[in-house]
Amino acid sequence: MTTVDIMMPFYGDVALMQASVRSVLAQDDPHWRLTVVDDSSDPAVPEWFATIDDERVRYLHNPKNLGLTGNFNRCLELVEHELAVIIGCDDLMLPNYVRVVRGVHADHPDVGIIQPGVRVIDSVGNATRTLADEAKQRLYAPRFERRYGLSGENLAVSLLRGDWLYFPSICWRSEALKGLRFRPELKVIQDLALLIELVQRGERLIADKTVCFEYRRHDASESSATAFDGSRFTEAGNFFADVADQMDAHGWHKAARVARLHLSSRFFALTLLPQALRARNGVEPLLRHAFGPGRS
C-alpha cells in the first residue's frame, strides 16, 4: 500500500505549526507518515508532540540549528516511503489531500511531480488572492478541466515563463528526489531550481484540479522580505542566466530564450516599484532586474 511521507521542516510560529499538524491528523486516508524536523529551540514544541498518541507521527529535533536550507535537506534525507511532500509549517492539508495524491499516483505511477488543487489563505486563515496568485492562475498556469500532464522542454518552458506551482503542496515520487538537494546559495528560488533539475532528468508533472491544500501567504515570509529589499531579484537574475545556459546545453533552446527573458520575474519587480518609491528603498535593484540584461 502506497504511503505518503509528509515532511515538515519547522522553524517558526508554534500555533501555526500545530494547526498544520492537526490538518494532517484529520486526513480521511490513513496511509501517511508525518515527520516534523524541529530546527527551533522552543521547549514547548517537544512537550506538545509528546501529547500526540499516533505512531504515524515522528518528531525529531536537530541537535544544532541547520538553517532553512539545511533543514529542508535534512527532510529530503529522511524520506522513506513511496511518495513525499514537504509541507510548510504554516500550511494546511484539507482532509482529502492524501487521498487525492494517492489517487493520481495510482493512475500515473511513473510521474515524479503531482500538483493538486490549492486554495490560498492569509495569515489568519481566510481565503485570499494576491497579485502573484492571480498571475499564477490567469497568466501562467495551463488551462485544463480535471488533470493535465507536462514533461520535457514544454514543462521547462511553462515553469520558466512563470512558476505556477505551489511547492509545499506538491507530492513527489520519492525515487525522483534521490540525490537531490536544495542549493544553499539560493534563498527564495530553491523550489524552482529543484524543479528544473528534475525536469532535465526527465520527470513528468501531473496537475489535478481537486482542491485539497491551503497555502498560507503572508508578509512574514522570506520571499516577501527579500522581494522588497531587492535581494530576491539579484538572486533571480543570476539564476535565470545560469539556467538559460543549461537549457542551451541541453538542446532546449526555446526554454533558454524564456529563461533569458524571465518576463514574469521582471513584471513582479515592476509591481513592487510603487512601494519602493514610497519607502525610498530598493528602487535601484528593482529597476535593474526589470530592465537589465539578467545576471547581476
Rank of each mutant, 00 (worst) to 15 (best):
M17R: 04
L66T: 01
Q115T: 05
P109N: 07
V79T: 09
Q115L: 12
P116L: 05
N62L: 10
L25M: 10
H108I: 02
D107V: 12
A50L: 11
P46S: 10
L78I: 06
A19H: 08
H81S: 13
I52F: 02
L25T: 01
D42P: 07
V14Q: 11
S41E: 15
R22E: 14
A26C: 00
D38H: 07
I113D: 02
I52G: 06
A50K: 14
G12T: 09
L25Y: 03
Q18W: 13
I52T: 02
I87D: 00
A44S: 14
V124W: 02
S123R: 15
G117T: 02
G125N: 09
L76Y: 05
G70F: 01
E47W: 04
W48A: 11
M17A: 09
A50H: 12
N71G: 04
Q18Y: 03
L94K: 08
R99Q: 15
V37T: 13
G103L: 06
G12F: 03
L92I: 11
H81L: 02
C75H: 09
C75W: 08
L83H: 05
I114Y: 12
P46Q: 07
P43Y: 04
L94C: 01
G88V: 01
L68Y: 14
R129Y: 00
L68C: 11
D107I: 09
M17D: 01
D39P: 07
T128D: 11
I114K: 11
R99F: 10
E82P: 05
L94S: 01
I87R: 09
L16A: 14
A19D: 11
R56M: 06
R58S: 06
V120E: 08
G103T: 03
R58V: 15
V45K: 10
D107N: 13
G125C: 10
G112A: 15
V120Q: 12
D110V: 05
L68S: 13
S123M: 12
G70T: 01
P63W: 02
V45L: 13
A19C: 05
N126S: 13
V57N: 07
H31M: 08
V36A: 09
N126H: 14
V37K: 08
V14H: 14
L68T: 13
I114S: 12
P43N: 08
D42Q: 08
R58I: 13
H105K: 10
V37W: 11
N126A: 14
N62Q: 12
T35M: 14
L16F: 00
G125K: 08
S23I: 04
A127K: 10
I87E: 00
